[in-house]
Every structure is written in C-alpha cells, then in structure tokens.
Design a protein around this nucleic acid. Structure first.
Lengths: 176, 176
DNA sequence: CGCAGTATATATATACCGAGTATACATATC
DNA sequence: GATATGTATACTCGGTATATATATACTGCG
C-alpha cells in the first residue's frame, strides 16, 4: 500500500505541510507502524509533479520555510475516483512459501537440503507464533483503550494467518 | 516475493545463463505468471556483487556470448539458510481498504465523497468477482491437466479472498 | 516456386520508475 | 544532550520498458 492516497485524503480536509502530514498519518492511517520523512516528501513531490497537489512556501523565523501543500481540483477528482474503486490487489500468484516447497522438493538429496515437510513445519510454527503475537497485541490494545477501528487491522492480520495455516494443511495433503 | 532465491535454487542444480533461467522460472516457480528479462539480469548482477554467484563467458558464433552463472559456496550456504527459515512476511499492519474506510468516514459530507458502506460494498463485489475468476482458472487448470502443485497457488488465492471477505463483514459490524 | 515481410527464439544491456531507508542539515526547547 | 520542528538528498531494491543483435520459421503474394 502506497502512502499517496493517504496524503491526498488528509489534504482533502485542508492544506498541511509534510511534517504535520507525517504525524497525522501515523496517528490516523497507519496506527501501529511508523513512516519515514523521506517517503513523505518524495511522495508529495511526485504528487505535485503530477498536478494533484500544489504548495506555497510559508516563511518562518529561524526555521526552514514550511511547504504547505493543498489538493488541486485534479487531486480531488483522483481521490474520489480512488475511493470509489475497489482495491487492486492483483491476485498474486507468486508466493515465497510455494517457492520454498518447490525448491525443497527439487533439491532433495543435495547437501543438507531442507525437506518439503521441514518447510511446511517451519512455516506452520512461525505462523502460530505470529498469531500469538497478534493476539497479544490485541490484548494490549484493549487494555490501552485503542479504538475499535485499529483493532480491525489486527483482525485482518489474524484472518490472514489462519487462511495461511489452512493452506499449509492443504500443501501437506497435496505434496507429501 | 523477490526472484533472488528462485534463481539461487535453480543454480543449485547446475550452472545456467539468464535466458534459460527465465524460462525455467516461468515454468517451475511462477507458473501462471511471467517475468521480465531486465529483472533476471539485474538480480543476477546483484547476486554476483554479493558473492553468491559467479559467471564465466561462453563464446558463441554469431550470437552474444552467454553469461553462465554458477552458485558459489556462500550462495549454497545462503540458499540453505533461506530454505530453513520461515517466510518473513512482516505482519503488515497497513492496508489499502482500511485506509479507504478511514478516509471515507473522515471525508463524509465533502463533495460527492464515497461512504464507508459504499467502500465495503465495492470491495466485497470485487472480491467475489476475483473469487469467481480463481474458480474459473481452477476449472481450466483441471481441464488442461495442470499439475496439482500449481493448483495450490490458486487455493491460496481463494483462501485469502475468503479471509478478506470475512474481514469485510467484521468491518461492517464495527464501523457501520 | 521464390521472395519479401513478419513473427518468434536466442541472448544481454540500459534507462527508468516507484516505494522505502538512511542520513544530512539546520535550529529551538526542555 | 536529548527531543521537537522542518526539509532535502543519496541510495537500494524490485520491477517495467525498451534497445540491440542475429537466426529461424512461417505466411502470403505475385
């Protein structure tokens, strides 16, 4: 997920400069993770290059000027179009675990190569650990009074992990 | 998923040049999708820079020389280590749909903004369509006698889509 | 039949782009 | 001396598009 539309979304509510935007994003949009300034600034540059935002400089005493960005009309249109269109996760028929399984099978017999069973076992163990981590994060979030929306991100993480675990079972049936 | 370890895996079975490797990858490792030559060659260059592979030139008449790559000892070690370690998908607590939902809510009321309900509905529709696509691919694969392993990739795709649909239900409960 | 034109296979290299990380540069405040 | 305010630059990595050659195979037309 790129940060591009997140920036546009914040700018739809009014002009802001990069430093502010970073803080808002971390609070509202990607809670539980953090961003890099370089990413914010270069994304804003690209948005400006593409005519989706403009900036004006606001002078300050004893500090670098602020670059206050605002969404252009084209930016508003683009944002609305993006909100209306479903996410474009392109099916993704390549998968690292699958690759490991294929390689483990074809390399069977070579010096100290991992077996396909071993791969499945390692992945399963790791996934269970992650599932546990997520559960803990969720518990801590509940304690800290984290808003329900944020917990949704954790829900998604565990649903994904569960799906992956189911898939590992299926792999075992088919391959072993 | 990067192509780096896939290349190393193929080279573990013997030396090959870029052009061959591309074909093997498409056949064995990322069936159902295709690769770009630039990616193969630049990944091989990086592997060589990092001491994981070496190449020697094999002259040919009337054609460019082949660059035949072979896995180094360090490469073998790295490959085995990678095969032993579980996939490192880092939990990923950012999600495009979540972003859309947050923005739809906070922009509610602005000019022609999409509602959160609308976002969920659009995502759901798109996911069902994809699920249908996957089912069709699966059917065609079965007809074409596609190996069972390849079908596993389709299984993963549908398990993921189902998990995502469940999550959308959950979003609706929490947000609407 | 022959020939021109076109697609495809063999083989690599380069330029470019977007996303993300690391780091440098300033100053003020706690 | 750490932390907050503010921006900029260089770099890496994964990936796409395109340029550069040549050989072979197919296709249609006169």
């Amino acid at each position: 997920m790129s940060i591009k539309h997140a920036l546009m979304g914040l700018l739809a509510k009014g002009p802001h400069h990069g430093y502010e935007l970073k803080a808002s994003l971390e609070e509202q949009v990607v809670p539980l993770s953090s961003l890099n300034f370089g990413q914010i600034y270069s994304t804003l540059d690209r948005l400006e290059r593409d005519g989706l935002v403009t900036h004006r400089l606001v002078a300050q005493e004893e500090r670098p000027d602020k670059k206050v960005f605002a969404l252009t009309d084209a930016g508003h249109r683009e944002l609305r179009a993006w909100l209306r269109s479903p996410s474009t996760v392109p099916l993704d028929l390549r998968n690292e675990t699958f690759l490991k399984l294929m390689l483990a099978r074809s390399l069977a017999g070579l010096d100290g190569a991992q077996s396909a069973q071993g791969v499945v076992a390692a992945e399963r163990r790791a996934s269970f650990e992650r599932l546990h981590e997520v559960a803990q994060m969720r518990f801590r979030a509940a304690e800290a009074g984290t808003p329900a929306e944020v917990v949704l991100l954790l829900d998604l993480a565990s649903l994904r992990l569960e799906a992956f675990l189911k898939w590992l079972d299926r792999c075992e049936e088919v391959l072993l």
